[in-house]
Amino acid sequence: MPGGGPEMDDYMETLKDEEDALWENVECNRHMLSRYINPAKLTPYLRQCKVIDEQDEDEVLNAPMLPSKINRAGRLLDILHTKGQRGYVVFLESLEFYYPELYKLVTGKEPTRRFSTIVVEEGHEGLTHFLMNEVIKLQQQMKAKDLQRCELLARLRQLEDEKKQMTLTRVELLTFQERYYKMKEERDSYNDELVKVKDDNYNLAMRYAQLSEEKNMAVMRSRDLQLEIDQLKHRLNKMEEECKLERNQSLKLKNDIENRPKKEQVLELERENEMLKTKNQELQSIIQAGKRSLPDSDKAILDILEHDRKEALEDRQELVNRIYNLQEEARQAEELRDKYLEEKEDLELKCSTLGKDCEMYKHRMNTVMLQLEEVERERDQAFHSRDEAQTQYSQCLIEKDKYRKQIRELEEKNDEMRIEMVRREACIVNLESKLRRLSKDSNNLDQSLPRNLPVTIISQDFGDASPRTNGQEADDSSTSEESPEDSKYFLPYHPPQRRMNLKGIQLQRAKS
């Protein structure tokens, strides 16, 4: 015994090295194993092979420090690593049964499904019991997946119906949107047309105001020219009257000059006056001389005659003075006559000038009245044309509004008919989907599995289990394997941990 101590140590070291070499393959693929292994699927088989106990299973599945599946799978690998070579062998058998691809990844061999460990530990009855539990578990999982698949199909059909409904609603909204954009385009076109009409109206108003201003300026210029013409006519008439007055005065002077006595007659009258003065002096001298030589009687007679002569001279002087006064009065009367005649001529000139001015103003008033009548006639014609244009424009607008209203009513009726057609199509689609759903539900009910399987069917299934373990590994792997896509769409199922009653199965096998 003492001599065998070193050999035992060498043997233990060799086993430990082999164990480390075995687990080295697992550690190399630890990331892939932790990512894809579900500990809840492996722990029943590991407990059946007595590699882990209930406490280890509870620690792996329910520990609060292991929230994710990767953490739980890593903890399970750590626990199996502590179990040595047996933990490695049982772990590979569980991978061979549940995850053939991972088994091939770790060992590089094809899975054979021999279950040597569980046969050694529990015997064939334990293997049968384990396989029966796994089959029931798989059936329950398949039923749950079928239910989930039916629910998802129903949800899918519902979503398809909602999608069709949303599509129809979208078509309806597109119809309304198209109608909205069309009405918006019509409104924009009408606004552009309105702005264009306003611009045209403004341009016409500006043109009309400009023409009116030009016409008023032309009328004012015409009036100024007419006033200048009238003033020139007035000056012409005044000059004609002055010329006529000057002509009359010149004719009067000419007549006075023609009626003036001649120079010879004046000289002859002056000679006669001198001769008479000479004779008068001679007679006076004779009379003076006679007075001195005459007697007293003759002197008395001469005195009487002288007195008579003096009286006659006085009378004559009075007559001469009277004649002079009369001549002066006649001259003054002639001057007054000439003055009055001049005033008369001036008044006649003024009267004729005023008459011509009156005629001029009368003509001017007639011209202004004619212009006013023409302006009123043009204004009435413009008003009439404007009223006709406004009436025609309003009539066109009324007809346009009428046609637009008819078009809008027809478009609304068309839209309502399209919407009604879309709604009826939606109703038809809904009815078809309901009919299809009812038909599929009836087919699913016919094809669904019963909840409680008979014992004979279970025994028959387990009677055929042994050949399947040898020759149909691919079928078992397809039913027991969970793909990543299934984990996305289906909830994980945790079967209840219970042991099955095998009395009925044993009785059935005894009868057979």
Rank of each mutant, 00 (worst) to 15 (best):
P111A: 15
T43C: 03
F115G: 12
P44T: 04
H129F: 11
E27L: 04
D53T: 03
E96M: 08
M8D: 10
V89A: 13
S94C: 13
C28S: 09
L33T: 01
K143V: 11
R86I: 07
G5K: 13
H124I: 12
K143M: 12
Y98K: 08
H31K: 03
D9T: 15
M132I: 07
R35Y: 05
E18C: 11
L76S: 04
E13A: 11
Y36W: 14
L15H: 12
T43L: 02
R86T: 07
D17S: 10
A21R: 13
L15F: 12
D78C: 05
V60E: 02
D53V: 01
W23P: 06
E125P: 13
E19N: 12
E18N: 13
C49I: 04
L15R: 11
R47P: 02
E24Q: 11
T128K: 02
I37P: 01
G108D: 11
L66D: 00
V26A: 10
M142V: 08
P39L: 02
N62A: 07
F97L: 06
A21S: 12
A40P: 04
N71T: 09
E134V: 15
K109M: 05
M142E: 07
E110S: 10
E125V: 11
I37S: 00
Y11A: 13
H129K: 04
E7H: 11
E57C: 06
L127H: 05
D146P: 07
M132G: 06
N62V: 01
S68M: 13
A40K: 03
E110L: 08
A63E: 00
M32E: 08
C49W: 14
A63W: 01
H81E: 07
N38L: 04
Y36Q: 10
N25R: 10
E18S: 11
E18G: 12
S34G: 03
E54F: 10
G87Y: 07
L127S: 12
A40G: 07
L131I: 09
P67F: 07
D58F: 01
V89Q: 14
L102I: 03
K50S: 10
L15N: 11
E101Y: 07
V120L: 05
G126T: 13
G84Q: 05
Q139Y: 08
L42G: 07
R47N: 02
E110Y: 11
E121Y: 05
D78M: 03
V51E: 04
N25K: 14
L61W: 05
V119T: 15
D146T: 11
N25M: 08
N133L: 08
E122I: 04
V106H: 05
D9V: 11
E96Q: 03
E7Y: 13
M12E: 10
L138T: 10
Q141G: 12
N29A: 03
M8I: 14
D9C: 10
Q48L: 04
A73F: 00
P39S: 05
P111M: 00
K69E: 00
R30D: 01
R86K: 12
I70Y: 11
E125H: 12
D10L: 10
Y36E: 01
D9G: 13
E7F: 11
E24I: 10
Y36D: 02
I118K: 12
T107D: 02
K41A: 02
L33Q: 00
V119F: 15
L42F: 04
R113W: 05
E19G: 13
L22A: 09
D9K: 10
G5M: 12
L61H: 02
R30C: 03
Q48R: 03
Q141F: 09
P67S: 11
E24S: 08
S34Y: 01
Y36K: 07
R114N: 08
P67K: 10
E121M: 05
L22R: 12
I37D: 00
E18D: 13
E19P: 11
M8T: 13
L42T: 01
E57D: 05
G123R: 15
E125R: 08
E57R: 01
K16H: 10
H31V: 14
E18L: 11
G126A: 09
A144F: 10
E24C: 09
H31Y: 08
F130C: 15
R75G: 02
I37C: 04
Y11W: 13
A144E: 11
E93T: 09
V119K: 15
S94T: 12
P67Q: 09
T14C: 12
K109T: 06
M65S: 05
L138W: 06
L15M: 13
N25Y: 09
G4Q: 10
A21Y: 08
Y98G: 10
I136A: 07
K50V: 06
A21E: 09
T128R: 05
T128S: 05
E110T: 07
K145R: 14
E96K: 00
D17I: 11
E54T: 06
N62K: 00
M65I: 05
A21H: 09
E27R: 00
I52P: 01
H31D: 07
H81T: 05
G108M: 05
D53L: 01
E125W: 13
Y88W: 08
S94E: 03
E24F: 12
L92F: 07
I136V: 13
I37F: 02
P67W: 15
F115L: 15
L76N: 01
E7W: 11
K69V: 03
Q85F: 07
L131M: 04
E125A: 11
L33Y: 02
K145G: 09
G123W: 15
I52R: 02
M65N: 06
Y45H: 06
R75T: 02
E54K: 05
N38R: 04
M65D: 00
Y11R: 14
N38K: 01
E13C: 12
R30Y: 02
P67D: 03
D53R: 05
Y88Q: 07
K83H: 06
Q48N: 05
R114V: 15
S116K: 11
Q140G: 14
P67C: 07
K137G: 09
E134D: 07
A63Q: 02
E57Q: 01
A63G: 11
D9Q: 13
K41H: 02
T82E: 06
G4N: 10
A73H: 00
P44E: 06
L46P: 02
D53C: 08
L61D: 05
R72S: 00
I118N: 14
F130L: 13
Q55N: 06
R47H: 03
T128W: 11
Q55A: 06
G4L: 13
S116L: 06
P100S: 07
N133R: 14
H81I: 07
A73L: 01
Y45R: 03
Q139G: 15
C49R: 08
L61P: 00
P6R: 11
M132N: 10
E27H: 04
L127I: 15
K83N: 04
M132Q: 05
L95Q: 06
Y88H: 14
E134L: 15
T128Y: 09
G108R: 08
S68A: 09
F115Y: 15
R75C: 05
L15I: 11
L77D: 03
F91G: 05
